[in-house]
Write a protein that binds this DNA or RNA. Structure first.
Length: 513
RNA sequence: GCUCCGAUCGUCUAGCUGGCCCAGGACGUGAGAUUUUCAUUCUCAAAAUCGCGGGUUCGAAUCCCGCUCGGAGUACCA
């Protein structure tokens, strides 16, 4: 039996978290919860040049909104802290030194400019320069320089990096939970920098040290890490941590909806769907990238959408709550190929989740819109309207346009509908509608009998013409719920006044023609 | 270029231990039903010769090989 399940989501605070990252966090979360394990949030901010203020807070806020919670992490603490790599800076050097001492790594003094020109040189010959077993012998490092020279440079404070020394002719196998065994030859791998000249570790070193010291059991991350996984495996071996090495699972990538390639930050606004969970204001450019939350997506819907992009429960069920996902999630059912995001299906999911919302919750979302239009309506009334209208919308933002006539009389009438429905003599029929409303008890059945059964059907009149004109008078166009339900909702006086106004305006207009 | 990963309807996918698959579901699309209208809802339909070519086998979407295409990586970035 293995140790307790401990997984981590380890983003870099270089900007807003995009949905691919959110999905990675979600899968980690589902796996952790399913196994009664621990979910950790670790911030990988070893690149000081790419640090973006606010990004860390954004990540936390986004995941909180989606209901992805952490047991340990930069914002909640925990026994394996600190959880921000910049706060762990002091502990990495000793590990680099251990590797140096044991011969798994070496000092390299080559300046960035020297490496750059080397790359150009190779490029000119249509080759790619790689700092590896074939080239390290001709570079400035502790493998080529005499020991006293190396020491002199170190003592003089010359900048250096520490590189991993890949052994030659070794096949390295990474066992991936999704892809099976993946084998690569060490000869093709380059001597990655482990420790930078600014005193910070690179991702590779920090990641392995942290995963080990935080007792991480499973590394679930994006497929872009698969090529460097052999290095990570080698690092575990070099440190002597092979027996507790975590298991790897490399997730397929989220692709652009059209065309090819990995989903990127720019795709969202161009294609009309968000790639970020929340709105993001770029502190440098002031640019706004829109988020799911602000577009009106429900967090449960976003979780559901993302869960099914690269995984399926093996059944035909598609609407899945977080609890169900936790129960059903399995790494075996994660697909191997990349998935394209489908906007239409995302909207469908949101519509489905919209229906699950209580009428009160929808009304709550509607309040700001009412306020913006200067409407003050009774709470119960708003709830009732929302209950009736929610099945017609995908996003809460559509509420006002689809049901504003419950709150105010139309200020214009759809010309096409007038032409089609308000035929000569309609003014008389509408006057009759008012008469019926004035004389018959204001009850659904009574009005139905008097208007629909007795007047329209009884006189063999055109049901479509009259009811649609009635609707046109009340709504302004020919959309909306059952006409009598609408009448019962807005009330007798309001209905009569709207019909009268339609008679005055439309009726006059038509008479003139 | 090199390395690795992948490849089923337009999209997400089921299919994993070969026969129940001339391939199932969902979104979208089309048609119809219901309704006084719009929407919802319901029904039906079209839609993948399982990337291509070889094998193995009585039998392959499922196993093997090659090819092609797509993706990722190839930084003192993660």
């Amino acid at each position: 039996m293995n140790d307790k399940v401990r997984v981590r989501f380890a983003p870099s605070p270089t900007g807003p978290l995009h949905i691919g990252g959110v999905r990675t966090a979600l899968y980690n979360y589902l796996f952790a919860r399913q196994n009664g394990g621990t979910m950790i949030l670790r911030i990988e901010d070893t690149d000081q040049t790419r640090f973006v203020p606010g990004a860390e807070q954004y990540i936390i806020e986004a995941l909180t909104w989606l209901g992805i919670e952490f047991d340990e992490g930069v914002h909640v603490g925990g026994p394996y802290g600190p959880y921000r790599q910049s706060d762990r800076k002091s502990m990495y050097r000793q590990y680099a030194e251990q590797l140096l001492r044991d011969g798994y790594a070496y000092y390299a003094f080559d300046r960035p400019e020297a490496l750059e020109s080397k790359r150009k040189e190779y490029e000119a010959q249509k080759k790619t320069f790689q700092y590896d077993c074939t080239s390290r012998g001709s570079m400035e490092n502790s493998l080529t320089l005499p020991a006293d020279e190396v020491q002199r440079r170190l003592d003089a404070g010359e900048p250096y990096v520490v590189r991993f020394k890949f052994p030659e002719n070794l096949d390295i196998t990474v066992h991936d939970l999704i892809r099976g065994d993946v084998t690569m030859s060490s000869n093709l791998l380059d001597d990655k920098v482990l420790f930078k000249s600014d005193g910070m570790p690179t991702y590779h070193l920090a990641n392995i040290v942290d995963d080990h010291t935080m007792a991480v059991s499973h590394v679930i991350r994006g497929e872009e890490w698969l090529p460097s996984a052999p290095l990570h495996v080698m690092l575990y071996k070099a440190f002597g941590w092979e027996s507790t090495m975590p298991q790897f699972a490399h997730l397929p990538l989220l692709l652009k909806p059209e065309g090819n390639g990995k989903l990127s930050k720019r795709d969202g606004d161009r294609l009309g769907f968000p790639v970020f969970p929340l709105d993001w204001h770029d502190p440098k450019t002031g640019e706004l990238s829109s988020g799911y939350r602000e577009q009106g997506y429900l967090p449960e819907a976003v979780v559901n959408i993302l869960a099914l992009l690269g995984w399926n429960p093996g059944t035909e069920q598609e609407i899945l709550s977080m609890d169900e996902l936790i129960k059903l999630f399995s790494i075996e059912h994660i697909s191997k190929s990349g998935a394209k995001f489908n906007v239409e299906k995302a909207k469908w999911f949101n519509h489905e989740y919209m229906q699950k919302l209580s009428d009160e919750a929808v009304a709550e979302m509607f309040q700001p819109q009412l306020k913006a239009h200067g409407i003050e309506a009774e709470h119960d009334y708003v709830v009732k309207v929302c209950g009736m209208m929610k099945e017609r919308i995908t996003f809460p933002s559509e509420l006002w346009d689809t049901c504003c006539y419950f709150f105010k009389a139309p200020d214009s009438y759809d010309p096409a509908a007038i032409k089609k429905r308000w035929k000569p003599g309609m003014t008389t029929h509408m006057a009759k509608v008012i008469e019926i409303l004035n004389t018959v008890p204001f009850e659904y059945d009574a009005i139905h009998k008097a208007l629909l059964d007795d007047y329209i059907v009884g006189n063999q009149l055109n049901m479509g013409q009259i009811m649609n004109s009635f609707r046109l008078a009340v709504v302004g166009k020919t959309v909306g719920p059952d006409m009598l339900t609408l009448v019962m909702t807005i009330g007798r006086d309001e209905t009569i006044s709207r019909v009268q106004r339609a008679i005055d305006t439309i009726g006059e207009m038509k008479d003139v023609q």
